[in-house]
């Protein structure tokens, strides 16, 4: 514990550019180099990256561990499916708008209840509330399709007609990948601004010392509530973007083990860093896909990795690299 740097370093945007620009260019160029299947896998990773980024505003920056983020992801996804089912809309922008509104309403409702608590009770309460939604999606067969879920066809992007001649794989690996990438960049940018704003600093102050933060004049519950909202909406956007990739929404994404997966990927990447959750989400997605292909017992493999991470590398991938970097630098300059 003591070896993990406790502060998320506030770097100026300029300092982040040397590695952010190459990563962005790589993400932009990659679909030309790898096959469509891998591109779609990467798109899944980026979508989950948005969810993990939203989740980490609560865990990493506000110090609240939510075990119910499946709720907002699921609300985003089901909003898309229901909009299509009842209004026969196929525009992705309208889908996203609906998902943002729906996740905003639900996270306002849940957040109002949850921010009264911290620590273990916050975790249990978020979990219990997410299960309310799961049981509704599970049981209201006429509306949600129960465990069959709801099918959603490929949407239109930016109002343009589909131009890949009905080839869904190509559509997802080209048009839709870049669409997701655009949203991904926007979300990262917005989150970057949020965590480096006075608001973001106040959240970190609350995380580090609640009593002191209150003495400084921070209205703790209101700040937590707003953080909860932002976190929920980010996760809702991810849920909406996830639907066209999967083509189907099922209650599984509302069930609490899915919340556990969001926690897992964030910890895997490192929740004490800004970029950790993003790396964690992409890596987790590859890890899970290859583990599923490699063994029936992929769950045990991932579980063992999680236990190992928490025991040996609580800083996650990025946290550990950041920690090792100065040490390496020192050794080489000697």
């Amino acid at each position: 514990m003591s070896t993990v740097p406790l502060t998320l370093q506030a770097r100026s945007p300029m300092k982040a550019l040397p590695w952010a620009v190459p990563v962005a260019l790589l993400l932009f160029a990659l679909p030309q180099a790898i096959d469509p299947y891998k591109t779609i896998l990467l798109a899944y990773g980026l979508v989950m990256g948005i969810a993990a980024l939203g989740f980490n505003l609560l865990l990493g920056y506000t110090g609240l561990l939510s075990f119910g983020h499946s709720a907002y992801f699921g609300v985003g996804a089901y909003a898309v499916a229901l909009i299509f089912k009842y209004f026969h809309v196929r525009s992705m922008e309208l889908f996203l708008l609906g998902a943002i509104l729906a996740s905003l309403v639900v996270s306002a409702l849940f957040g109002f209840v949850c921010v009264r608590y911290t620590r273990i009770f916050f975790g249990i309460l978020t979990l219990a509330l997410s299960q309310v939604l799961w049981s509704l999606a599970f049981k209201f067969y006429p509306i949600t399709g129960g465990t069959d879920g709801l099918r959603v066809p490929t949407p239109t992007l930016l109002g343009l007609p589909l131009d890949t001649a009905g080839d869904k794989i190509l559509f997802l690996a080209r048009n839709y990948y870049y669409y997701v990438l655009g949203f991904f960049f926007a979300c990262v940018l917005v989150m970057w601004v949020i965590v480096n704003s006075p608001f973001g600093k106040a959240l970190q102050a609350i995380r580090d010392n609640e009593t002191r933060a209150e003495f400084v004049g921070i209205h703790i519950r209101r700040y937590r509530f707003v953080a909860f909202l932002v976190s929920g909406v980010f996760t809702g956007i991810a849920g909406a973007l996830w639907v066209p990739l999967n083509g189907l929404t099922t209650p599984d994404i509302l069930y609490w083990p899915f919340s556990g997966e969001i926690v897992f990927m964030t910890v895997l990447g490192g929740f004490r860093t800004f970029s950790g959750p993003i790396f964690g989400a992409v890596v987790f997605n590859y890890l899970k896909t290859s583990a599923v292909g490699f063994t029936t017992y992929w769950q045990a493999l991932l579980g063992a990795i999680l236990v190992f991470l928490v025991l040996a590398l609580p800083g996650g991938i990025v946290g550990t690299v950041v920690q090792l970097f100065p040490m390496l630098k020192k050794r080489f300059s000697r």
Binding site: M1, G123, F264, T296, W298, I305, P314
Partner: peptide, 27 residues
């Protein structure tokens, strides 16, 4: 090893345990 650490880590490690036990029973 987790009693001295934050509650979050305890939840995580028992979640990992959940995944392992689930598959052990399948095995």
């Amino acid at each position: 090893p987790f009693y001295r650490r934050a509650e979050e880590y305890q939840l995580l490690v028992t979640f990992g345990l959940l995944m392992i036990l689930e598959d052990l029973m399948r095995f």
